[in-house]
Design a protein around this nucleic acid. Sequence first.
DNA 1: TACGCTTGCCAACAAGCGTTGACCAACATG
DNA 2: CATGTTGGTCAACGCTTGTTGGCAAGCGTA
Lengths: 235, 235
Amino acid sequence: MVECDPSTTPSATPPGGRSRARSATPAVRPEVDAGPPPVVTEAPDAGGTHPRPRRSDATRAAILAAARDRFAADGYERATIRAIARDAGIDPSMVMRYYGNKEGLFAAASEIDLRAPDLTAVPYEERGARLVRHFIELWESDETLTGMMRVGVTNEAGAERMRRIFAEQVRPFVDAVCPVPEEAPTRAALIGSQILGMALCRYVLRVAPAVELSHDELVAWLAPTVQRYLTAERP
Amino acid sequence: MVECDPSTTPSATPPGGRSRARSATPAVRPEVDAGPPPVVTEAPDAGGTHPRPRRSDATRAAILAAARDRFAADGYERATIRAIARDAGIDPSMVMRYYGNKEGLFAAASEIDLRAPDLTAVPYEERGARLVRHFIELWESDETLTGMMRVGVTNEAGAERMRRIFAEQVRPFVDAVCPVPEEAPTRAALIGSQILGMALCRYVLRVAPAVELSHDELVAWLAPTVQRYLTAERP
DNA sequence: TACGCTTGCCAACAAGCGTTGACCAACATG
DNA sequence: CATGTTGGTCAACGCTTGTTGGCAAGCGTA
């Protein structure tokens, strides 16, 4: 039953290989604490950006990594705390202690950076294609975004998270290249609908014809759409 | 793993009428045992195609209606058999007897008819707009499609159901108007990606700018995209 | 050495799940 | 009438879930 070897403390990426192939996620973000556990006494900031390295930082990171994988693979309900703890090689109660409850864990595990490119540096007619290619590569770099969608559809907190990502990371870069500011939200939503829709068909539902398209074909088909949403006159 | 119950014959083969519950959820039985005597005065041989009306048909329909609502609202995992039974005003065990298990219930509850219009009767340049408008209205007519998406994203059986709907109800009508047959699946998938993507943003995630668009604006923005996927030369 | 945090495991809790089988009330038919 | 079938309730089962509290070992410091 117990496969956890107590002699070796879980280090940087302890859960072994598992199914994990990602390495693109920001290595470690130990500051996500935010202090949900009520017993934790707020440590004085000590002047630095980091409060202080804790001995449990590796465990926290392992939990977070396992949580990301599980939420991505199974969605919110089926990703159980027990399974996440098992993947991380620790006891379920530790998850509670460090993240308060399941929602807190999800909140900590679902921070996403779209790394949207700066479109102002891209020639006018190539912006659509650039955007499409960026998101294809981002989507295929790991399962984070697939997981975000799985959770966003079934869980209200997940949906809220997606709305926030949209508002904070998609709208701004559309804003930057949109001549009429009040049109930017609409244009961003349209772009999002096409990107998310293709991602849904290709990576989540795995509709055959969508899966079989090559990157270049995908760009060739979708780029004009995105370009139009980005630049065409409002109909 | 009892799949076929020998004692009774639940076999979800003839789940009530084939007629789709189009008019919202028919208030079959909102109250607990409204007290109509379960007298079935139906002629035993009335319908030639139907095997025979059973006394329990009303209950079966109530279960199905409640199941559709719950699956739509909560997704597969959170839509519990107990809650569905409560909504239908009967005991959870009846659900098991009539539909075998939860997956069987879902299979029976998730039959969907997109009623895609015959595009050959629509002028060439209006086909995209016609398609977009049809799906907007379909999506807003009830919560069936929203539920389908919720389940399709988290549950593999739900995803398979969506792939089948795509193959059986979307591809054919694209086939009918696509001059090059082998391009039809791709074009259908592209159209599906845009329609589903907007539905995701507007009805499931409720991204504000997508929600605020009027029907006409929606058609004006999306129709050219769909039209291009439908008719433009393959890039 | 002893003390107080920290880190972690263990065992248990209450609740909820899908599912089952026993049992009862009608009805249909001999 | 008796009998078999159908429609339905009730109480429970085995299991998993999120969550909690107690306890033991490790560590930093006095």
